[in-house]
Amino acid sequence: MEVLRVEGLEKSFGKNRVLQGVSFSLKAGDLLGIIGPNGSGKTTLIDLISGYAKPDGGRIFLEGKDITRLPAHRIALSGIGRTFQIPRPFADLTVEEHLFRLEKEDRNKLLKRVGLEHLRDRKGTQLSLGQRKRLELARALSLKPKVLLLDEVFAGLNPASTQEFIGLIRSLKEEGIGIVLVEHVLKALFALADRVLVVAEGRVIYEGSTEGVHESPEVRRAYLGERAFES
């Protein structure tokens, strides 16, 4: 079942055309990996879907409902959770208080699931980077989302945490959450993605299987470089 559909998104900042007709769709339980060089418009795409910025053209549908013009908080409550490139815990709130939308029992389950149950009373700003990323994922999951937008969630994680996060995201897929993963850590992305979208200069230059992206000479040459696939 399709949960998210993006049709012809356009966005410019001044004369800079950041997105030029980007379209894709996402099924429940699927993970769409988005890659591309820095400045290619990946984070802008996430900002548009989550309502932080409004597109100049194109439309966004969540379970068939047009959410293009909804404010960010309404989009979040409709079922789109997101994380940020740099985690931003709330300064004066404890880890547990970040999950204020959930009942006590659900909060406990979620904290255990992301491995933060022993830090529930600690302030979000006292956490390490890896813990902050777990907290941010938990915060997004506290909305009980249908779609998750993950922006470079693997950046800066050590190998053990990366493996844990891969397991965690896999389990979220199994629950039927549709996931959009913008990522530079390609090994993690290829381990999880059902399909890959390659964006460059605001355009989609590839959409298809993870195997196919390895074989695309255009992607290899222009955006990933030869060495990205050596291992």
């Binding site: 932080y52 908080h73 979040a76 959770g81 940020f84 931003r88 709330f90 204020f100 915060r139």
Partner: peptide, 24 residues
């Protein structure tokens, strides 16, 4: 009340507050 949490969220990080459904 829960209002304290909501206000502490929006004063700490407006974008983060919106991401958890707070009408800032």
């Amino acid at each position: 009340s829960r209002l304290r949490l909501i206000y502490y969220m929006l004063r700490s990080d407006e974008l983060g507050a919106r991401s958890v459904g707070v009408n800032v």
